[in-house]
Design a protein around this nucleic acid. Structure first.
Lengths: 342, 342
DNA sequence: CTGAAAGCGCTTACAG
DNA sequence: CTGAAAGCGCTTACAG
């Protein structure tokens, strides 16, 4: 079996030109139906495989999309972004592109090194999955290639971004706590690490405001340092009756901390999370949380990047994808029956 | 800023040929040092980016390696293979290759559909990460491309494979249980699902044999059906004093089951796992388990595939990478002090 | 409907 | 040390 069958090989056997073979194999006009069938049959029989690289050279496209994930989001316990990537890859395939993951080493992020794949022109566009530092974002913008942010956005807002609706998700789950009779509600998260955490905080705050509940700064607990590394949680002297956590993993850590201090969840304190990831059901009790619609986010990001690769002037702005509350067992109702709003 | 700078563009500006530019940029002989420096400077200044596709066309290589992961290993709670992939990608990069993940849909596995990427000649080799059905394995073998199995092996043994040392890992951790005074020891896993589970069982069995302990079939508990879907664990009427689980996730499920039946771990029953993945420390108590050396496995797999891409007749056979026991809190010592063997 | 010509951007002999 | 020629495998006008 010859390993390298080309269109020309097929053409010669059939005594036609390779142009005709090309047309036939690509279902283009300009070949008689009869000849087309014959060509396709022979191609099949000879074990012909299309050589994409030749096409790529012609039209200057690689048909690859690079998905950049900052290294620090890929620890042993963090599978969220890899999960998201799976959806991206699948949707990309449907559009005849391939996804290539690039785990961005923190070092390259610091030193502003672009991925080698960029220098080798092997990608037509980038999806950045997870926030990098500002300088790296600027660098990515400066190379002027199709670019979409996924799960975060740039303050200047001039890059298209698909995010989960952090604000309303946190707003609604806080509303739910209040409807369940809670009035003393804390928030766990470092407001200055990512826009997600900040926006979730603001949604939580909006809910408090609407219900005329004061924001008690003692109830806002830092969970990580500026670089995103988790720190020990410091509980306030007097606990609120409920905590809104910026993610399920932190909710899990908080519950562990609470348990070790002798508090039971939800009997003594209620806790809600965000993401509905693996931690939501690994925690006892299972977490009431906000489920992020990963598939919908991936679909949007891919749609945007594909359109931008066709026309880099296309813009979509910032698109939020709605999540939904998953009710489980980590919230105790303080009122006999659940009140409707206030 | 012109977007498509080619070697020819640089050549023209400098009034030399593109051959010379090619030589200079690739650090090949045949250019004066002086000219080389000039060319490199200008290339930098003009924002030249190497076009890999042109090179690929010349030498018929894509410099891509496809990593095939069967879909069923990528559920919400399974991040192990994605983790492994990260290492593969990193090591591949060091060898100037790119990794492309292909999550193999179960449907394609059933219907024996090769990934599109194969038909488009966009890869030079395959690493199969996770076992597929036999027919798919045969299909992959039949296309005659560089192929390495990772974390499983083929019964016929004619494909190079990198596996974790399941047999000795299970053997050693079972020895440890016996040294801790256990004599009634169960095993949890379906022996007919993957070779890993089977080999771990055999390692466990070897340890029993060496210590003249009878294998009690009532203590061998099925954890999943033939297709790998977890089933409800059925505890035997009389419990052994310890269980060897085929993986941490099952150890976690077993402990949950034991707890719900009123048993405490490790007070009433000891449990050990395998993998040292996220479940090992999410479980209370934290699991004593066998840590798999993912990095070493990835390194080997990449080394093998790279050499095979250079010379497809190279063979390496089956290589096992040693794991190591991580001691935590899920085993109770039944003897006052730990005995040395018997 | 069919095909000769040119070109995508590089590299590999080979000649000077 | 330097470069003209040919080729990798396809596709895009364009001519017949």
């Amino acid at each position: 079996m010859k390993t390298n069958v080309t269109m020309r090989d097929i053409a010669e056997k059939l005594d036609v030109s390779s142009v005709t073979v090309s047309k036939a194999l690509n279902d283009k006009d300009g070949v008689s139906e009869e000849l087309k069938v014959k060509i396709k049959e022979l191609a099949e029989k000879m074990g012909y495989r299309y050589n994409t690289m030749a096409k790529s050279m012609k039209d200057g496209r690689s048909y690859n999309v690079c998905v950049i994930i900052p290294e620090r989001f890929t620890g042993v316990s963090q599978s969220f972004y890899l999960k998201v990537y799976q959806f991206i890859a699948r949707v990309l395939e449907e559009s005849n592109y391939y996804g290539i993951i690039h785990i961005l080493p923190s070092e390259d992020e610091e030193n502003l090194n672009l991925p080698r794949i960029y220098h080798e022109r092997r990608v037509d566009g980038f999806i950045m999955l997870g926030q990098t530092n500002k300088e790296y974002i600027d660098l990515m913008k400066s190379i002027n290639m199709p670019l979409v942010f996924l799960d975060f956005y740039d303050e200047n807002g001039d890059v298209d971004a698909v995010i989960t609706d952090n604000f309303y998700g946190a707003y609604e789950i806080t509303n739910y706590l209040i409807q369940s009779g809670h009035k003393e509600i804390g928030y766990v998260g470092n407001l200055f690490t990512t826009s997600s955490i900040q926006d979730r905080f603001l949604g939580y705050y909006k809910s408090l405001l609407e219900h005329k509940i004061n924001l008690n700064q003692d109830y806002v607990i830092k969970d990580r340092d500026e670089r995103g590394v988790y720190i020990d949680l410091e509980l306030p002297d007097k606990l609120p009756t409920a905590f809104v956590c910026n993610c399920d993993q932190i909710a899990h850590l908080l519950i562990t901390k609470l348990n070790s201090c002798g508090y039971k969840v939800p009997e003594d304190v209620s806790v809600v999370g965000f993401d509905n990831d693996i931690y939501a059901t690994l925690t006892a009790p299972h977490l009431t949380t906000v489920e992020v619609d990963i598939e919908e986010m991936a679909k949007n990001a891919v749609k945007f990047i594909c359109e931008k690769m066709d026309d880099n002037s296309a813009t979509f702005g910032r698109v939020s994808v709605k999540g939904k509350i998953i009710y489980r067992d980590s919230v105790k109702s303080l009122s006999g029956l659940v009140e409707q709003g206030n």
